[in-house]
Amino acid sequence: MSFIQVKNLTKYYQLGKNSIQALKNVSMNIDEGEQLFLGGPSGSGKSTLLHIIGCLDRYDTGSVTIDGRDVTLTNDREMSDFRAFNIGFVFQNFNLLPVLNVFENVQYPLLLSRAISADQRRKRVKEILESVGLDAHAEHFPNELSGGQRQRVAIARALVHKPKLLIADEPTANLDSTTGAVIMALMLDLSLKHGSTVIICTHNQELLVQAQRCVMLRDGEVTNDIVTQIQSENTYVYA
């Protein structure tokens, strides 16, 4: 059984009297450790799908299971706890807490999942800051960092608690293309090391073409689901 199973998923948005069908019968299986790219034109339902898989939103029909768990059968509190332990998010706008410094921002998920001691926490944060190359900036606040640095912090924060699933909604859209490429490579590399499954949605054609697995959406429907076996793992890692 696949790590993530999406079956006949539909999602409607109510806008006044009109309802918009954002997802139509979407189905896909994602294996553990897989790195999946989600593409498609604006409004095709990429974010909607990510939000549902990330347990942030409900859907109308169909089913989504992660690690054998139906993610909508639970109440808000259990959903929150599930996210805290199992999912990391990287956002387009970095979404760091402005009043917390780099170290504190990265440590936050460990406090939310309350799984480990203070000593281990500090060690963990230090390690991951080193691996994103920001150990020297631990005391800095987000407004003192460049966009690329902020996204590195966000990646560290998303992976610090070793989530099974990393979800990134256009993580490089606010970065220049060079920085974006480096950040993307870093994110994929780190999640590979952690064994996290990754789902990234992007408009970047280059990334989609190079992707191990690429799912294309249009008007809420899957139009293409390409798995490229021949792609060697290293190709994009240091792109």
């Binding site: 990330g54 942030l56 808000d76 509190r77 929150s80 706890d81 599930f82 996210r83 805290a84 332990f85 999912i87 998010f89 956002f91 706008n93 979404n95 807490l97 402005p98 936050y108 998920p109 939310l112 999942s113 924060r157």
Partner: peptide, 16 residues
């Protein structure tokens, strides 16, 4: 609001 959304996504409960 956006901070609330971020914290909730990270798994903070409503009570938090």
């Amino acid at each position: 609001t956006f901070e609330i959304g971020t914290l909730r996504a990270m798994g903070m409960r409503r009570s938090g």
